[in-house]
């Protein structure tokens, strides 16, 4: 396959496959991640997300295919340009916060004096300035989470890979972390963001890829993905409409929410046609809005239909 030199692409995954014995964890997976954007790497548990990420950060190598970062093949040298927050993560229990951070920074090739400055900056930014000399065991779960985040950005990486970064954080801290992440985004850095929380993904990601059972299911910009999924979804609120919306020729499925209904139109049916039928019938319509499918809907459908 000819390598297209594309300055816009920061990470290119080309036809990678990884097997563990008889089990194929990732099969013929390809995708590009564009610079300066947030990329959602989605999929149910066991789909092959962590295996793929481990290959990107150079912990394991693919059996087939290739990975290139900034047009450079993945190696130990590229590790310094990546910040990786694993899903399963931890800190040394009996070590001071500042000492751990210094060690992690040094392992990423940051110089001593540089590390000191950056650690102070980030601890302040995270509101943990006074915990600098504390030991891990004295920190709350949320604080540990923030320290772990600091350790992934200390070396100012060009590519940030966050695997379930918000698990275990309270809503206030989730908002705070989203703020910090958006600062990162404006610096033209690439963020890969792996999660199974579709609402957060929908909010943060420009591009997504959904993988299931070690293969790619759907991918592209959020907009493309949603459009390709069709616009036959209507948020509806109204009285005296049962006869019309239960007509299987018009509406395929009704999902009832607390104060409104979601109508999945039958194939080939125009929303205008439904609205007309409702008015002709004399229904009292208070809401009739053409909506996009949520990422959650797409996720559930793609994964359960597979």
């Amino acid at each position: 396959m000819p390598e297209t030199l594309d300055s816009d692409v920061s990470l290119r995954i080309s036809n990678i496959t990884k097997r563990f014995g008889d089990f194929t964890a990732v099969e013929d997976l390809s995708f590009d991640v564009r610079a300066g954007r947030v990329f959602g790497f989605l999929g149910p548990n066991g789909a092959g997300k962590t295996t793929t990420i481990r290959m990107i950060v150079g912990i394991t190598a693919p059996d087939e295919g290739s990975i290139s970062l900034f047009n450079e093949s993945i190696s130990y040298a590229t590790q310094n340009r990546i910040g990786y927050l694993p899903e399963e993560r931890g800190l040394y229990k009996k070590m001071k916060v500042v000492d751990q951070l210094k060690y992690f920074a040094e392992l990423k090739g940051v110089s001593r004096s540089d590390a000191d400055k950056k650690i102070d900056f980030w601890l302040e930014r995270m509101g943990l300035g006074e915990w600098k000399k504390a030991k891990t065991t004295d920190l709350s779960k949320g604080m540990q989470q923030k320290i772990q985040f600091i350790s992934t950005v200390l070396h100012d990486p060009d590519l940030l890979i966050l695997d379930e970064p918000f698990s275990g954080l309270d809503p206030v801290n989730v908002e705070f972390m989203i703020d910090v992440l958006s600062e990162f985004r404006t610096q033209q850095k690439t963020v890969i963001f792996s999660t199974h929380l579709m609402e957060t993904a929908e909010r943060l990601c420009h591009d997504i890829i959904l993988i299931n059972k070690s293969r790619k299911v759907i991918g592209g910009s959020l907009r493309e993905v949603k459009e390709s999924y069709g616009t036959n979804l209507i948020a509806f609120r109204g009285l005296n409409a049962e006869r019309v919306i239960s007509d299987k020729l018009l509406v395929d499925k009704i999902v009832t929410h607390a104060d409104e209904q979601e109508l999945h139109l039958a194939e080939g049916v125009d929303p205008q046609q439904v609205l007309k039928a409702l008015i002709d019938w004399g229904a009292d319509v208070t809401k009739f809005e053409i909506t996009e499918p949520s990422l959650n809907d797409i996720f559930i459908e793609k994964v359960t239909n597979a």
Binding site: V57, G58, I59, Y76, Q79, N80, I82, Y84, P86, E88, R89, G90, L91, Y92, K93, F104, L107, K108, S151, T152
Partner: peptide, 17 residues
């Protein structure tokens, strides 16, 4: 065992050989 148990290994392995 500490590095394995606390999953620090994952971070270490993404930083050095």
């Amino acid at each position: 065992v500490e590095e394995k148990e606390t999953r620090i290994a994952e971070i270490l392995f993404s930083s050095a050989r």
